[in-house]
Design a protein around this nucleic acid. Structure first.
Length: 423
RNA sequence: GCAGCUGUAGCUCAGUUGGUUUAGAGCGCUGGUCUGUGGAACCAGAGGUCGGUGGUUCAAAUCCACCCAGCUGUACCA
């Protein structure tokens, strides 16, 4: 018994029946990006690991526990892309995009790799639609990228989603806030969950994000960052909200929204289904990262962007009842069974394809009945029948498979012209 | 990472308190009834070491242990 191979844990095959969903998402993503004036950028599947270790932050879960890293034969320390933002910033610096007209608006669809526990909507390899705007600190750009996702989901038939919006201020003022937060929690430290005790030291902001029962009593009275933003961040936040409001984008302020990446400042957001309480239901999320380019060795340069998981978008589409008719696998199906019919069928198929008709040739050895069944199942509009009589007379039978039209005889050399003309 | 649930043909599932040698059904697939005409019907066939390994037993799909995979929640995140 040979072992049966299977797709690696957390990866999946996208079967033909699912391709219409992918095609729809990819098409609409491209269109929405175009409508907003974004340029496509593709980056490699893997990068020097430092891009993420420095860029994403080496205490983040993504880098600490989830990154696929490896050393190649040349002793280079590499990582499969776990998120796109640092990669796009690396490309921005490497290609001197600072000398392009600012800001630079970029988009992509890119596979992402994270070594975490697979579940529905959570995979070790998934694909994200991502947009980044580098070189602008305008709050209107924050609203713009949120608007891109909003437009995309709307075009794909996804209803009942809401933007969760927050601001986590700039890095400087945030230090003061974190101090206050720790002062608040310090007396209660013993009563907190184990996770939260750890958070207290390593990432105090996440204290507010806890879902543990024991931590709930302390959350309400805790100081909220959105209530004490620095003047600059406050004005920025208000501009974003006003813009979203004017565009009719449904959002709610989430004072507890803290995202897992170190580089975020000011605007952070997620888009979630209104009704769905699942842990991994977020379909898109992002935020501002004004310090990131500098961390990667560039000049101070503001930026903002998001990622949205295509697999999760498709799950939402299905929940919203979006479906696609099974596509016909051919326009024309050639049924043939006669001495010497193979070259005739083969050549006829080539002629038809030249005229743009997708054409499939039946299996030479099978009975007429079997081939006709296959022709019907293919969804083809027309069957072409070539048997002994046809070979003798040099004419093929054209049999419409869908309408009421009668079948007719057409000389071999005119078949492609007859069918192609109507196409 | 932690906790729980699940695992029998390609798919959806039956399988009685462990006990008849070749483990079943529907759908799908292939073929036939109809060696030249699809959609319907009928008939037949192929396809499973019952997730894997080891153990208990005269006997395991059924009981036990471990492993693998999927799902659910949680930590995180898209």
């Amino acid at each position: 018994m040979t072992t049966r191979y299977q797709a690696p844990r957390g990866t999946q095959d996208v079967l033909p029946e699912m391709q219409p969903y992918w095609q729809a998402v990819l098409d609409q993503a491209r269109e929405v990006a175009r409508l907003h004036g974004y340029h496509r950028l593709d980056t490699p599947m893997f990068e020097q690991a430092g891009v993420f270790e420095k860029g994403s932050g080496d205490t983040t879960d993504i880098v600490e526990k989830e990154m696929y890293t490896f050393t190649d034969r040349g002793e280079e320390h590499l990582a499969l892309t776990p998120e796109w933002t640092p990669a796009s910033c690396r490309a921005y610096l490497e290609h001197g995009m600072a000398s392009w007209p600012q800001p630079v608006r970029l988009w992509t669809t890119h596979p992402m790799f994270r070594y975490d526990r697979p579940q529905k909507g959570r995979y070790r390899q998934h694909t994200q639609f991502g947009c980044e705007v580098i070189g602008s600190e305008d709050a209107l750009v924050d609203a713009e990228v949120i608007g891109i996702l909003w437009a995309l989901y709307g075009r794909l038939g996804i209803r009942d989603v809401v933007v969760r919006l927050g601001s986590i201020d700039d890095h400087g003022p945030r230090r003061d806030y974190v101090q206050r937060l720790q002062d608040y929690y310090r007396p209660h430290l013993e009563k907190l969950s184990e996770d939260s005790k750890r958070r207290f030291e390593r990432n105090p902001l996440r204290l507010l994000d806890s879902k543990d029962e024991r931590d709930q009593p302390f959350k309400d009275a805790a100081p909220k960052l959105v209530d004490m933003l620095s003047p600059g961040a406050q004005a920025h936040h208000e501009t974003v909200m006003a813009a979203l409001q004017s565009a009719g984008i449904a959002f709610e302020i989430d004072p507890l929204l803290v995202r897992g990446l170190d580089y975020y400042n000011r605007t952070v957001f997620e888009i979630v289904p209104t009704e769905d309480e699942r842990a991994q239901s977020t379909i898109g999320g992002g935020g501002r990262y004004d310090g990131l380019i500098e961390i990667l060795g560039g000049p101070p340069t503001p930026g903002i962007g998001f990622g949205s998981g295509i697999e999760r978008i498709i799950l939402e589409m299905q929940k919203n009842g979006v479906s696609f008719d099974a596509a016909a696998s051919a326009d024309v199906y050639i049924v043939h069974r006669a001495e010497g019919s193979q070259p005739v069928a083969f050549r006829m198929a080539a002629e038809l394809r030249k005229r743009g008709l997708s054409t499939v040739i039946g299996e030479s050895g099978r009975s007429f009945k079997a081939q006709m069944r296959a022709a019907n199942a293919s969804g083809a509009q027309q069957a072409i029948i070539i048997g002994d009589d046809e070979m003798a007379s040099g004419t093929a039978v054209l049999k419409p498979l869908r309408g009421d039209a009668e079948q007719r005889k057409v000389p071999f050399e005119r078949v492609a012209g007859e069918l192609g003309a109507g196409a």
